[in-house]
Design a protein around this nucleic acid. Structure first.
Lengths: 164, 164
DNA sequence: AGGAAAATATTGAATATTCAACGATTCCCG
DNA sequence: CGGGAATCGTTGAATATTCAATATTTTCCT
């Protein structure tokens, strides 16, 4: 079938595309917000690719890593730490509980709270994920340079601090 | 109702939380991937807040901004430029077409392709969004410093380049 | 030329995220 | 003390994203 018919495509000109003189504005690639999004997307994608064989998304690694201090963390603290909204975290934790990676304990001191702990199974998985993540960091440092990496980290930390 | 009963909460100990000595590993806050995610989240959130009154998500601004050069862009090029997967872009463009911000034209030279254009309505919206975005950039530069901002941008560009 | 393979964009189903509202508990303050 | 307000986490519905499969068109190769 003709694609134009099925897609409701607009045909403003018969012979040519519209070409209009435009006053150029700042290209999107020069915006800090865009550069951050692009860098984050790329690095995150690479890390996800490494985690692929473990079948764990990056967010779950963050959760496991935070919990692997062995201490309990409330859902609220955890949400802040792993950069997830509360309802998103709740549902992700549900999945991780199903996979027996973490478990919930009701906080006896404040019964509104739930305290999250990592399981033994979660701990051993975390170790494998940590080594995958460290190997990525090593790979970046190698290609990108130790100084650049350190400078970038420092600048990002400072930006995050100022942004709050 | 008792929360523990409804939530299937685990009670591994009667009197105390499990506390286990752990060998500490690199904190998540020192990973580049985490710092990028955190900075991106924060900056993106702030930009989204500014765009709130226009009711436009950041991704749509990116699309509008790329199209505002007045030239046509194929869906594939656009997807790369705005950091969106193809199906996600298709559906977002559907919404933008409904809002009369952009329109589709079938490419006469390659009829597999769809060429996207911005509408007049899209252009005027883009101008408002651009000024909101520029004001955010100015705000960042002010709090964070011109040099730090420039350095950070340069390092991010370089990281993106090396990461490909 | 002709047919297999690649490229392009979309669709539908499955999955994930978000928003608003809720239930339970604790805090605060008169 | 008592009751309204705040906090904490979850839920359900609405929305958005992703994955796999598809339709169409073009390219490539012999």
């Amino acid at each position: 079938m003709d694609q134009a018919k099925s897609l409701n495509i607009h045909h403003p000109f018969q012979q040519s595309f519209p070409t209009v003189a435009r006053t150029p504005s700042t290209p999107i690639t020069e915006h800090l917000a865009y550069l951050l999004a692009q860098a984050n997307r790329e690095i995150n994608r690479q890390l996800d690719a490494r985690f692929k064989k473990e079948g764990v998304p990056v967010e779950q690694w963050r959760i496991l890593k935070v919990l692997s201090d062995g201490k309990g963390h409330s859902m609220g603290d955890l949400a802040d730490a792993v950069l997830l909204n509360h309802p998103t975290l709740t549902k992700m934790v549900d999945r991780m509980v199903s996979d027996a990676l973490v478990y919930r304990v009701q906080d006896p001191d404040d019964r509104r709270k739930v305290v999250m702990f990592i399981s033994d199974r979660g701990k051993t998985l975390t170790q494998r994920l940590n080594s995958l993540a460290l190997s990525q960091e090593a790979h970046i440092a190698e290609n990108y340079g130790n100084k650049a990496t350190a400078d970038l980290k420092r600048l990002l930390e400072s930006l995050i601090e100022k942004a709050n």
